[in-house]
């Protein structure tokens, strides 16, 4: 097994340092799902609120999964327990590819475990909302995809400013928010929540022109996030190479 991945998994799962992220995710989503079905919080919209249960839960899940994955990638849980990157690259002399693959694999494991944990809640919400199985499946694919695309930039931030955690956290949060807002301003369907809402509700995403052209919103969204995520992985390698 990749030594970086082994170390990360050991700290995160065997020692339990990453459990708070998973428990917060489960707690917030479970509470939100239950409250969404509780009449006093919905008022006169109660009758149709159930129909939106899966859409709301899925959009909340994508935000939470990406957020906690970003924090995990940015080493915000038990930072002192992890060995610094220069240790792997310089002292142990591992190639950049090994370290990059180890960190990326850990990120995938974090996202996968998050998805596994919240899968029952999402599936139940889908059943209550009578969501078509195709929409359910698409949502289960899109949530980890978006989470990886956004959280990989946490790895980039870690590689660039490993020794300055205090400035790194606001920097990566600000950068992510900026990307989301700018993308939304340029073309609303680029927003992952907007897209998830459309997919989970088995509806067509909003068709809005971009510079006069009307492309298929779903394809544009996926291409954008694919490019954004790929850029993150390339930047991560580049930043690791700088350390070496």
């Amino acid at each position: 097994m990749n030594p970086v991945l082994r170390e990360h998994l050991g700290i995160f799962f065997r020692e339990g340092q990453g459990l708070p992220a998973l428990l917060y995710l489960l707690g917030i989503l479970g509470l939100a799902e239950f409250l969404l079905l509780t009449p006093p919080y919905l008022g006169t919209q109660m009758w149709s609120g159930t129909g939106s249960l899966f859409k709301i839960c899925a959009s909340l899940a994508v935000v939470l999964t990406a957020y906690f994955a970003l924090r995990a990638a940015n080493r915000e849980y038990a930072p002192a327990r992890f060995k610094p990157l220069c240790y792997w690259l310089r002292e142990r002399g591992y190639p950049v590819g090994v370290v990059a693959r180890g960190q990326a694999a850990f990120l995938c494991a974090q996202v996968a475990s998050s998805m596994l944990l919240i899968a029952p809640l999402l599936m139940w919400a889908g059943a209550i909302s009578r969501t078509p199985p195709a929409s359910l499946a698409a949502t289960f694919v899109l949530i980890p995809f978006y989470a990886l695309c956004y959280s990989v930039w946490g790895l980039v931030a870690l590689a660039l400013r490993e020794r300055a955690p205090d400035s790194r956290e606001p920097m990566i949060r600000g950068f992510t928010v900026m990307v989301v807002v700018v993308a939304m301003i340029v073309y609303l369907p680029l927003n992952p929540v907007v897209h998830i809402l459309a997919v989970a509700g088995a509806e067509d995403p909003p068709r809005i022109g971009i510079f006069g052209a009307h492309g298929p919103p779903g394809v544009v969204n996926l291409c954008f996030h694919f490019a954004y995520g790929a850029a993150g992985f390339i930047a991560h390698r580049w930043a690791l190479a700088r350390i070496r």
Binding site: A119, P120, M123, W124, G126, A127, I128, R130
Partner: peptide
């Protein structure tokens, strides 16, 4: 839990 809940609620 996922399978049982899904079957029950749907």
């Amino acid at each position: 839990a996922t399978a049982a809940g899904y079957l029950y609620f749907s």
